[in-house]
């Protein structure tokens, strides 16, 4: 075989694959076409607008820099690819953990990653999936309040979730629940320890430090928590892209 033939064969076999699985899908996925809710199938109408909140872009950069993706994934797989939707609080909330609400579990869709430059799908689940971190934490806060016989508003729930995230970043093993087994790295370097001047800060963490000092989140901790608070991907989507819709809780819609 001549070199020319060799080069042509090599270029063709590689180039075809390169174009069809790399280049074309990359640009196609840049502009997903909007999807509408359909009357009769969905409970609402109009175009599906994914929820967005927080300083997503620079928070995601902090997430990437510190290698959170090494242990946490961000994808809810459909039933053919894994059992993610069978767990009560990963793909959304099942009635088991959210007795008053609907079953919000659903698989990930292309709009869940909009606003990012890189979808941190992740490689390993040494830690839990984070796609629905916020609904999971909110359910836990509500459950805790209920157990304590406490009435709390949604605002208080959100505030407690935020405090929990800061505390977890500072030292995951400071929670009794995780103390003995969590291998999540603590990241005290995202926080600053400073002298209390006047009133202690509202954001100060509940940790023991030198008297007259407090620990408050630094800029990067703020950005990261803001990003983590955007990890809430359980809003209802059009049935046309919910390939494995949960069974309806009751028949009253029919």
């Amino acid at each position: 075989m001549s070199f020319r033939l060799f080069a042509i064969g090599l270029t063709a076999s590689f180039g075809l694959a390169w174009l069809s699985v790399v280049v074309v899908p990359f640009f196609k996925l840049r502009t997903p076409s909007p999807i509408s809710f359909q009357e009769g199938f969905d409970e609402q109408e109009g175009i599906y607008h994914p929820k967005r909140a927080g300083r997503v872009a620079n928070g995601a950069a902090v997430y990437a820099e510190n290698g959170c993706y090494q242990c946490h994934t961000q994808v809810i797989r459909p039933t053919y690819a894994g059992m993610d939707l069978a767990r009560p609080d990963v793909g959304g909330l099942s009635p088991a953990v959210n007795p008053d609400g609907i079953d919000s579990r659903r698989e990930s869709n292309v709009f869940d990653y909009s606003g990012l430059d890189f979808a941190m799908i992740g490689t390993t689940r040494t830690g839990p999936d984070l796609m629905n971190l916020v609904p999971r934490l909110k359910a836990r806060v509500r459950q805790q309040a209920k157990d304590d016989g406490e009435e709390i508003s949604e605002g208080v729930v959100a505030g407690r979730v935020r405090d929990y995230l800061f505390q977890h970043l500072y030292n995951p093993r400071s929670f009794a629940r995780l103390e003995n087994w969590s291998s999540c790295p603590s990241m005290p370097f995202l926080f600053e320890e400073r002298e209390i001047k006047g009133q202690p800060s509202d954001d100060a963490l509940d940790v023991t430090v030198e008297a007259g000092h407090e620990v408050v989140p630094g800029d990067r901790a703020e950005a990261l928590v803001s990003y983590l608070l955007s990890l809430e991907h359980d809003d209802p989507v059009p049935a046309t892209m919910d390939y494995a819709p949960a069974a309806p809780a009751d028949d009253s819609q029919g």
């Binding site: 790399v22 990359f26 640009f27 996925l29 990653y113 909009s114 430059d117 890189f118």
Partner: peptide, 22 residues
Amino acid sequence: SAHLLVHGFSGSPLGAAGVNAW
């Protein structure tokens, strides 16, 4: 090409994840 796509063209999060896996 992989580095050019993920660093040079923003706004395709899933496309970039695919390029990275490839």
